[in-house]
Every structure is written in structure tokens, then in C-alpha cells.
Design a protein around this nucleic acid. Structure first.
Lengths: 134, 134
DNA sequence: AGCTAGTGGACCCAACAGGTCCACTGAGGG
DNA sequence: CCCTCAGTGGACCTGTTGGGTCCACTAGCT
């Protein structure tokens, strides 16, 4: 766990896209400006999101990025994992090194009791929920 | 959340103390040696634990540290907070900056649903439990 | 052809975790 | 009464990494 700034930016940028008419295309500089995020950095972030199929890029006249799916079909979990890596939820809240059932950390039990609940919430929660302010 | 290495060392050292006859005094170098923790660093850690009243220091002939209370009376939460700071559980799992009910982070709701459960567990769990391998 | 933004790699910088060093303190033993 | 060893605490060092910039290149419209 413990998310990077990058992931916060990703969420905010995706929310921005989700809040406008479906299929809208916005450029990275445009979104960066609107949200107060450094432009070059946001470009990088979109590249990653694009690699994971959450957004599609467009070049030429109408350039920028658009969502590949409606916000209600994109789970928060998916977004987090796109940026943080697919092993995000294998990692431990307490210490970064992943602690599995073998070689557990001292507090492994405690986290493993709690984790599934959190995971379920983030799985269920969608970009559309976030865009609605939930 | 997200604990430092220091905190892991603290837990291990305290477990070490809890596992020997009550009132035992062990020196930092001795414990460091036994647990494979850098000596100078462990001294620092004990100083903090001592400042928070979890251990007492002894000088002179019989020197070292001893627990001030039986392990069953020291909660894991207390230990974590001693090292990480009292605001540990006000911090957010997701992003480091504390996110309260005002100015919440994007995932504040989700964490605030889960947190009390984790907190309760760590409050209930004691050093004695850890020493017993739980 | 030229404009602008996407692409992707190299790179830079500050902050901080993790850990070392050192000079000082204090209690007991010879 | 001084030596010894650990506790005390502050200064300091260092490698990693998160956060962000730069630059050369590509692609699609006008």
C-alpha cells in the first residue's frame, strides 16, 4: 500500500475525463492546467494509463486522451494497480517488502484479516463513483 | 501507516526482552548481536522506547534495558506509536499527508471504514502475544 | 511543410530512511 | 579514585527513490 503522488494525479485526471461528456478527448497539457499538475509529469502518467488500456491516445487535430470505457466500468482498484503495479495488494501495509504466508512480517496476521475488506471496497468502487464525489 | 525499519527492530527487541525471565536486563549491544541489528542504531531505538516509558535503562555494573511492565500490559499499538509518532493512526494508509474529515483524500471514506477495525486489533494485541508467536 | 501533442528514454534534485561517529555521563570494581 | 563499559544525544553521512524536467523523435491534421 502507500500510494504515490503519481497515483493521486492519475485519479484526479481520470475523474476530470469522467466528468465530461462521454468520449471527450482532452490533451494532457489542458488537463494539467485545469488541475494544477505539472504537464510533463502528467504526460508520463497518461502513457502508463494508456499502456494499461484505461485511456486511449489520439494524435493529429483532435489530440489528447479519452476513456476507453465508461467510468462506471472502471474500478478504483484497476486504476491503482495500473500505476502502482499489479502486486500492489500483495504488498504489506506495514512494511514495504511483500510479506506472504511464508515469511510473514510480525503483523502479517493483522493486516491479512483487514485487507480483503478494503480490497472488496476498492473493487466495487468505480471511477463514476469518484466523479460523483463518493 | 507504513512503518519504518526502526519499528520492526523495536518490536523484535522488545519481544526478545519479553521472552526472558521478567525483570531481565539486557544491554543494547547484546540484543543487537543476538538479533542481527546494527548496535548503534538499536541504542537509538531504545532511547526512544525509554523516553516513552516502555523500557527502563540501567547504568553501572548491571547495565542495559528492561521492560517497565509485563509484556501482557504493553499493547502493540503503544509500541508502534512510540516509534512512529502519536499521530500514526491519524495518517492515511494511502497517502502520507494526514487526511481528516475536512480536506479528505480521494479514498478517505474507504480507509476510514477500515481503520477502526485495524486499530482495535492492534490495541488488543500485546507484546506477550507477539512473544508467543501470535 | 508546419504545428502541436503524444512517446519514451535520460536525467536531475531534494528528502528521508537507515545508519555511523563521537564526545560526554554515570555507576560499580579493582 | 580512576578505569571501564554502556547509556545519552547530537551531528553527520549516504544510498535510494519519489517527483519532476528535458529532449529528440513521431504522428496526424491543415
Amino acid at each position: 500500500m502507500h500510494l504515490r503522488r503519481e497515483t493521486e494525479y492519475a485519479l484526479r485526471a481520470l475523474i476530470f475525463l469522467a466528468q465530461r461528456p462521454k468520449g471527450s478527448i482532452c490533451s494532457a497539457p489542458e488537463i494539467a492546467e485545469a488541475l494544477g499538475i505539472p504537464g510533463g509529469f502528467l504526460s508520463k502518467i497518461f502513457q502508463r494509463l494508456s499502456g494499461h488500456g484505461l485511456v486511449r491516445s489520439h494524435r493529429g487535430r483532435q489530440r489528447g486522451y479519452s476513456l476507453t470505457r465508461p467510468g462506471a466500468k472502471i474500478s478504483v482498484r484497476e486504476i491503482l494497480e495500473s500505476i502502482e503495479g499489479m502486486d500492489l495488494f500483495e504488498r504489506c501495509v506495514f512494511w514495504e517488502e511483500r510479506c506472504g504466508d511464508r515469511d510473514p512480517c510480525l503483523l502479517h496476521r493483522d493486516w491479512s484479516q483487514i485487507k480483503p475488506r478494503l480490497l472488496a471496497r476498492l473493487e466495487r468502487k468505480t471511477l463514476a463513483d469518484l466523479a460523483r464525489g463518493n
